[in-house]
């Protein structure tokens, strides 16, 4: 009863038979054991599960694994390249943009999409882009700074 899918995740191709109701978030966490993608809610409201699907930030709990067939996916584990951290991974450390770290993968993936489309966003644009991501620890202050910092070093 499984449906075959093939997805590229962090540059590696995976083929599995999955149940039609399996969420992409669960596929990543349970089948591929990529547990950096977190699950914080059951209403697609928190953004902890955000990944990139074909370059776009997507909440992986809103997508079925079967819908990802043929897609190219990047998760937090795949963001660093050749052992070099992504500018956002560095700037979150530099600006203290994380505390418990649970929202962090989702925040960084959302910010990756933002900066790809808008390399030097204003504070308001950043705050607006983070609307779909809850953080209960930081009050967002340092997350905003981290994204500004990464924009500056990228730009």
């Amino acid at each position: 009863m499984g449906i075959p899918i093939t997805v590229q995740v962090n540059g590696v191709s995976h083929s599995h038979e999955v149940e039609p109701r399996l969420l992409l978030a669960h596929y990543l966490r349970d089948v591929l054991r990529l547990t950096g993608t977190h699950i914080g809610c059951d209403t697609s409201s928190c953004g902890a599960c955000t990944i990139l699907v074909d370059g776009k930030a997507v909440k992986s709990c809103t997508m079925l694994a079967v819908q990802a067939d043929g897609a190219e996916i990047t998760t937090i584990e795949g963001l660093a390249s050749n052992g070099e951290l992504h500018p956002l991974q560095k700037s979150f450390n530099e600006e203290h943009g994380l505390q418990c770290g649970f929202c962090t993968p989702g925040m960084i993936m959302t910010a990756t999409d933002l900066l790809a489309n808008n390399p030097s966003p204003s504070e308001q644009e950043i705050r607006h882009a983070l609307e779909g991501n809850y953080c209960r620890c930081t009050g967002y202050h340092n997350i905003v700074k981290a994204i500004q910092n990464a924009a500056n070093t990228q730009g």
Binding site: I76, E77, Q89, N93
Partner: peptide, 20 residues
């Protein structure tokens, strides 16, 4: 700068639900 950050920014934190 926090020494614990790297595992969180790279997706390698180990939360209870991550354990199988």
């Amino acid at each position: 700068k926090r020494v614990e950050d790297k595992r969180f920014t790279t997706g390698h934190g180990r939360y209870t639900d991550d354990i199988v």
